[in-house]
Design a protein around this nucleic acid. Structure first.
Lengths: 233, 233
DNA sequence: GATATAATTATCCCGTTGGATAATTATAAT
DNA sequence: ATTATAATTATCCAACGGGATAATTATATC
């Protein structure tokens, strides 16, 4: 019976369910640590809690990651890698310039909304003045192809005469990120101060198009006859 | 000699230099606590350190503020009050709509740049999901007249036909804050990822006009002949 | 089946830190 | 001057938490 179940489980996964699995253990610790740090920050993040939630002894954390700081760095590396992968689903090449810009804006907005823990983690790293991201060789080598994607869209748009020349893709990316990031990161204080709604589905949907609009109005060429689709409520 | 100096000191301040001064002690603790929390966060902020830097016994902190959390809340209240006061120097009434919008943008940008500790504190409060700002009666009652100032500018601009109708002043304030806040709050990770410069005087000056531009392009009326001064490098 | 290796556990440790207890003393009111 | 009040200090404490030591055991290799 027990043996039967065991065998069944073993059949599912090719390498028989090993109690000792370096990769799996590492990954599970990382996953839990991500949640823990995103929730409570670096100082607030508790290694005892991580160990408990990951079903490992605390010692294992230090066995694999040496110190809490290094664990945090590893978490950051994982988070950024995931984001990088997500950005690859973003295909702007096939779209008209305006559609591409709007797609870009909505994609970024959706990503931040869907991954508040990521937003929190980045925020926390900034509180620490980016010292982990700066110290991580892996993170420094990790390129973010999204900027070249943006650059390509801008170039195409300028060529077609619908986007004005001289826009720096990094600056554009920064503006977009600022707008989307803020909607998640600063939600609580902003809502409290201005009795604004940034949490309901309706408010988010509105904000989403608002940001796309903002971005498009910023890049579009208004010299001569700018035939734009930017009209809404 | 000593008496002389003492007397001199007493002459300077009307109420003779009191060793026991409720108000002064409270204020000094708050000031140091502000720096400490902005630097190290709520969990990372150390009451021993605050006591030492403020030249008081730790007990005094709890005597006046009961708990660390309440001290943090008091710090928040002070910070927001200061910001509110700063906003009163912003006189948009006398300016043409476009000038007013640009002034607003630059003022906000400058404030965040000049007060990174404030930016950090707000960030930290958001990491804690705004639970202190929400719990503070004082903060809930503290209005932020800046929104009505913005609303007034928008109204005037719409009346003059230079600003398009339908813009929500709170949304505009949010967008502007997002852009300015990000430039300070997310500087470290953004610089690390995109090898961008957000710290040099030159980069800041550029970003400042860029944001003003962005905002103006967003609100200006482009129906009919929009005579705008929005041209730059 | 014996052995070596490395993944994992059980336990302990000690510096840190919010906060509590109780004594002290400057100041204002009488 | 005396007294009452309240601001301030001196000490202590117990829980927490990062990390270290050493023992254990599953697994791969021979």
């Amino acid at each position: 019976m027990t043996t039967k179940e065991k065998r069944a489980a073993e059949d599912t996964k090719q390498p028989p369910v090993r109690r000792r699995d370096k990769e799996r253990t590492r990954r599970e610790i990382l996953e839990i640590a991500f949640a823990e740090f995103a929730e409570n920050g670096l100082a607030g993040g508790n290694t005892d809690a991580i160990a408990a939630r990951a079903n490992v002894t605390k010692r294992l954390i230090f066995y694999y990651f040496n110190t809490k700081e290094e664990l945090f760095t590893a978490v950051l590396e994982m988070a950024y890698a995931k984001m990088r992968i997500a950005e690859q689903d973003l295909h702007l090449e096939a779209l008209e310039p305006e559609a591409a810009i709007r797609r870009l804006a909505e994609f970024t907005f959706d990503f931040d909304q869907a991954n508040p823990e990521y937003v929190r983690l980045v925020t926390i790293e900034n509180i620490h003045r980016g010292r982990h991201i700066r110290a991580s060789k892996k993170l420094k080598e990790m390129t973010r192809p999204i900027v070249s994607q943006i650059a390509a869209v801008l170039d195409r748009g300028v060529g077609a005469g619908v986007i004005r020349p001289g826009i720096d893709p990094v600056e554009l990316h920064m503006s977009l990120n600022a707008l989307c990031f803020f909607s998640v990161a600063n939600r609580h204080t902003f809502e409290a101060q201005f009795a604004a709604d940034m949490s309901s589905q309706k408010a988010k949907a509105q904000r989403r198009v608002e940001i796309a609009d903002l971005l498009w109005r910023y890049v579009r060429n208004d010299q001569g006859a700018a035939k734009s689709a930017a009209s809404k409520s």
